[in-house]
């Protein structure tokens, strides 16, 4: 199918994006890599009247060390993160997770900011950010807000971003520690049926609820996952237990 008609604005600054969001309200949507928004529009699951293209805003596409944190700009593409040496050295959990995100052509365009703002509970990256205790940076006319990943994902495709706020970067603390990542999917590149991203004793499950679900190692899982075409809730509970056991084995003794 084809997307419905809309107006298109190519923004050049973050301030312009926030002003446009404030002006048009819920009818406007930010367009980053377009790899989630455009399929939704082609399927007519979304029909914004204004698209604000942030793809050409400069300064949001860098990966850099900031003291004891690694900062990834909102417009950095999945593929760039996957191939980045700093990320591989300091946050190998993220490198491993990105191998499981979609396919090469989609990774070449999809952005980290778009993925996190989309807040798909089946996505790998929100769970990684929760396990890593990452902090989202959100800009609005009121300034920059820092939001901990644990409080950023508020529900199914819902985040703590205000209507006129834009995600500009994510800060990942370089705490080190042993990590684990695994997901169960029917085919390579598919969204997971159940997945687990873990750092130290923080286990962040994905595809088991309306947002990433954090559990401490040793804590009861007590999950209430969805029943859908991919898997029943009971199957997801079972698989989450399997992944938890594998994680504890892999991280054994060190957590």
């Amino acid at each position: 199918m084809k997307a419905p008609a809309f107006d298109y604005v190519r923004a050049t600054t973050v301030a312009e994006v926030c002003a446009l969001l404030a002006e048009h309200g819920p009818d406007a949507r930010i367009l980053a890599g377009g790899q989630s928004l455009l399929p939704a529009m082609n399927l007519r699951l979304a029909s914004p009247s204004v698209l604000i293209d942030i793809g050409r805003i400069s300064g949001l596409d860098a990966i850099e060390m900031r003291g004891d944190r690694l900062r990834i700009g909102a417009l950095v593409r999945h593929q760039t993160v996957l191939r980045d040496g700093l990320v591989a050295r300091h946050v190998p959990l993220l490198t491993e997770a990105l191998r499981h995100v979609a396919h090469p052509a989609i990774r070449a365009r999809g952005t980290i900011g778009g993925n996190l703002a989309h807040a798909d509970p089946a996505s790998e990256l929100p769970a990684c950010m929760v396990a890593l205790q990452a902090v989202m940076l959100a800009d609005s006319p009121r300034g920059t807000r820092r939001i901990a990943a644990e409080y950023f994902f508020t529900g199914l495709f819902q985040t703590a971003l205000a209507p006129d706020e834009m995600l500009t970067a994510v800060d990942i603390p370089l705490t080190g520690g042993s990590w684990f990542f695994e997901e169960i999917a029917r085919r390579s590149g598919d969204y997971a049926i159940v997945g687990l991203a873990a750092l130290g004793s923080r286990l962040a499950f994905f595809s088991v609820g309306d947002r990433p679900v954090l559990r401490q190692a040793g804590e009861a899982l007590a999950l209430d996952p969805p029943d859908d075409l991919q898997a029943t809730a009971a199957m997801r509970v079972h698989l989450a237990g399997v992944l938890r056991d594998r994680a504890l084995l892999a991280l054994g003794g060190r957590i």
Partner: peptide, 19 residues
Amino acid sequence: CTIRIDGALARACLVLAVQ
């Protein structure tokens, strides 16, 4: 619909002509 844009793979159905 796979094509190349600036040397990188892309889905032509997930890119607007204006982009």
